[in-house]
Design a protein around this nucleic acid. Structure first.
Length: 748
DNA sequence: ACGATTTAGATTTTT
DNA sequence: TCTAAATCGT
């Protein structure tokens, strides 16, 4: 493919975009509104710098937040300037820093083979430590402690400093103690958690100024994407790296900052000019993605936030369709209504499955939507649940691999020393850890000399396990990742163990392990792979998420959380579960800053849509298995009713007054039965009725239900909104009904 | 030491 | 409702 000339490149841009692309030296901040062509500006800018000889590809460091963003950027730059693009250092903060830390590991007491602990590993290690301290883990929840430690690390606060800050707080004191021990254990296990990949960068810079100096000169130009999502640690690292040349360009949108729960600090972008007073600010305000209606509605929403950089996002696109609002009594009905709208859009607009996305606040909400889509025979794919590499069976095999590279990996050892079962119980494992701790021996030494060190009855089995790992270690030294993975899966006995299971789940677990072997094969065979060894394969999958699994070209409806949808766009978007307490979440409703973040999240959701937007809520939905009633989200009210197809209040009774032939959503939606009339003969139904006040019910009362008919109340339980009745129906038997929405009528 | 059963807690969001 | 950890019984 011929590469575009610089002139052609610049001709592709509007004035604001072009100015940002042509910014040469010195600090720059690009505020890129939703849909304003941010990625284009980013990629064009990098291409421009290289083309114009302002810098070399090797001088560039481009940091993103997700692997997906990094991959996309790389592909698009390659399309512009060809293979030269591969020389840019580009990736997520975590992956770029992990690579760098591997190179310099010895300077901070690690080896290049260090393991990256995921959340599960980290919490598990903290749980061990809490137990070893003899503390009650009900009172001091490992997860809470992990969270506190993570916060510390985001702000580069060490255990001692934290202890001093929380001198009079019991939880704080314990956390500080655990924090210190946790870091000891990580170091001993040659492991880092996600946060350490940042913290240790700072430690590296402090411990070895010459390394900092080297990278400062290596990376003359630094680009940071999604700057609004960076935390303090990331801020410090990039600032220090950029100090020599000050060629730092940050790109972001304060209105799309949705990660403060992970330490993202909006101040980084709001106060960027304090650190770099001569910063040049570029604002990209023209939206190319969405219809006028969607852009305006989004603006109205975000206007309710006090804390933001003033900007005016506008579009020259037409007004387009109005927003559809579905009001449902239950989450099941909500899903059905949305699926109906989806079918209608498919039929009238010629859209494909891949043009649709269902977005929601929490992963748990996907289930009903999946059910409805499955019933309608629509292909969908859920992103977000647990990713492939987080599945139990995969983590088990990976644990063996981790040990092959780093036999001191405590969490991997604990995970598989007795899986498949080889008679090494919890007591023996604790004994091993205790010996390692008290005699200050490496975990691996205790394993290999279990008998001599007095591990106990299972010492023989432990040493045998050690030999198994030893075999894998030597294999890893000479063979590529695929060879080690396939051998480990067999030699560990995992494949055999899974093969024994006859259940459907067991079968799929076995297949998953095969899939992991395939993945390692592909990794080894991929020409883009620089190092086919196990170590780099592991390094890659440690920072992998399921978002990276998206297969293009397949025609499926996308289901994902709004967080996961950031950076994506779809012709038609459904935002579901717009209820107080769910979105905004009850955990974020009572604090101004949290609420503003929820609102930004809603802003992100709305601005994913190009043409068609549907918002919906359910009056009551099952949460943790019990029905919860909620009011519609305040965010709905923050959009002027004129943007909605149905007037706020109830469904329109009359055809819409809009001229456009496209505004056809108001056509009475076909009932589900219409799709397969021959299968579902219409039963003449009684006139449906609203229920009587639950307060008037009593045991022994005769009642009528819309579907179940006449019955007798035999029991009443619960109170308030949770009031339930056990009713004995004449033809349908006993049912337990939630009165709040069962709509029972007293029969006299 | 291990499997079966019970129970508690989780639902924000992710590198 | 679903999962993971705790407890129990063998």
């Amino acid at each position: 493919m011929p590469l575009a000339s610089t002139e052609a490149l610049l001709a592709d841009l509007n004035d604001a975009q072009r100015a940002a692309v042509m910014h040469r030296e010195g600090p720059a901040m690009i505020i890129a509104g939703a849909g304003s062509g941010k990625t284009r500006v980013l990629t064009y800018r990098l291409a421009y710098l290289i083309r114009e000889g302002v810098c070399d590809a090797f001088d560039l460091l481009a940091l993103t937040f997700t692997n997906k963003a990094a991959r996309e950027m790389r592909e698009r730059i390659e399309a512009l300037i060809g293979a030269e693009a591969r020389n840019i250092s580009m990736g997520t903060f975590h992956s770029v820093f992990a690579r760098l830390l591997r190179r310099e590991a010895d300077k901070i007491g690690f080896t290049p083979a260090f393991t990256i602990y995921d959340e599960e590993d980290a919490v598990s290690l903290i749980r061990s430590i809490v137990k070893e301290l003899g503390k009650d883990e009900k009172r001091y929840k490992p997860k809470s402690i992990k969270h506190a430690i993570s916060n510390c690390k985001n702000y580069l606060v060490g255990p001692a400093e934290y202890a001093a800050q929380h001198a009079h707080d019991e939880f704080g004191q314990l956390t500080a103690q655990v924090y210190a021990l946790y870091q000891d254990r990580l170091l001993k296990a040659n492991a880092m958690d996600f946060d350490d990949l940042l913290v240790n960068m700072v430690k590296l810079f402090d411990a070895a100024p010459e390394v900092l100096y080297r990278y400062q000169h290596r990376y003359r130009f630094i680009l940071v994407d999604e700057y609004q999502d960076t935390n303090y640690a990331q801020y410090v690292i990039t600032k220090r790296l950029a100090r020599q040349h000050e060629n730092i360009c940050v790109v972001g949108d304060d209105a799309q900052s949705i990660y403060s729960f992970r330490g993202a600090n909006l101040d980084n972008i709001l106060h960027f000019n304090k650190d770099f007073p001569d910063v040049k600010v570029y604002k990209l305000e023209q939206n190319y993605r969405s219809t006028g209606t969607i852009v305006e509605a989004a603006n109205e929403v975000i206007r309710h936030n006090a804390n933001q950089i003033p900007k005016r996002v506008f579009t020259e696109n037409g007004a387009g369709d109005l927003i559809v609002l579905h009001r449902s009594t239950s989450e099941v009905e909500e899903a059905e209504k949305c699926v109906d709208t989806l079918r209608e859009l498919k039929a009238t607009q010629g859209l494909l499955n891949r043009d649709f996305a269902f977005l929601y606040r929490t992963n748990a909400q996907s289930r009903v939507l999946e059910d409805a889509l499955r019933r309608a025979g629509i292909v969908y794919k859920v992103f977000g649940g647990l990713s492939f590499y987080r599945r139990k069976e995969i983590k088990d095999v990976v644990a063996y691999l981790r040990l092959a590279v780093n036999p001191n990996d405590e969490e991997a050892l604990k995970r598989v020393i007795n899986y498949p079962i080889r008679g090494i119980g919890a007591t023996s494992v604790e004994r091993i850890l205790e010996i390692s701790r008290t005699q200050n021996l490496a975990l691996w030494d205790v394993v290999t000399q279990a008998k001599a060190l007095g591990v106990g009855r299972s010492a023989g089995a432990v040493e045998e396990f050690g030999q198994l790992i030893e075999t894998l270690c030597s294999l890893a030294r000479s063979e590529n990742a695929y060879e080690v993975v396939s051998h480990a899966a067999k030699a560990s006995g995992i494949l055999q163990d899974l093969h024994k299971e006859k259940s459907v789940e067991g079968r799929s677990r076995w297949e998953n392990v095969q899939e992991l072997i395939n993945a390692s094969r592909e990794y080894v065979d991929d020409p883009a792979t620089e190092d086919p060894g196990l170590e780099s394969f592991l390094a890659q999958i440690a920072l992998y998420s399921d978002l990276d699994e998206k297969v293009e070209n397949d025609d499926y409806v996308t289901l994902m959380t709004i967080h996961a949808a950031k950076g994506l766009e779809f012709p038609a978007v459904f935002v579901t579960g717009l209820e107080e307490g769910l979105f905004p979440s009850s955990l974020s409703m009572y604090d101004r800053h949290d609420l503003e973040e929820e609102r930004r999240l809603f802003y992100v959701a709305v601005t994913r849509a190009r043409q068609f937007l549907t918002l919906s809520y359910a009056r009551t939905r099952l949460r943790f298995g019990t029905p919860v009633t909620a009011d519609p989200s305040r965010f709905i009210e923050e959009i002027d009713p004129r943007f909605f197809q149905t007037p706020t209040g109830r469904r329109a009774q009359q055809p819409p007054r809009f001229e456009s032939a496209r505004t056809s959503h108001l056509r009475p939606l076909a009932p589900a039965a219409a799709a397969q009339p021959e299968l579902l003969p219409t039963v003449p139904e009684r006139e449906p009725f609203e229920g009587d006040d639950p307060a008037t019910f009593a045991v022994g009362q005769r009642v009528e239900h819309n579907r179940f008919g006449i019955g007798l109340i035999v029991e009443l339980e619960g109170k308030g909104a949770g009031l339930r009745a056990v009713v004995d129906f004449k033809d349908k038997g006993r049912k337990t009904l939630i009165l709040k929405y069962a709509r029972l009528r007293v029969v006299r």
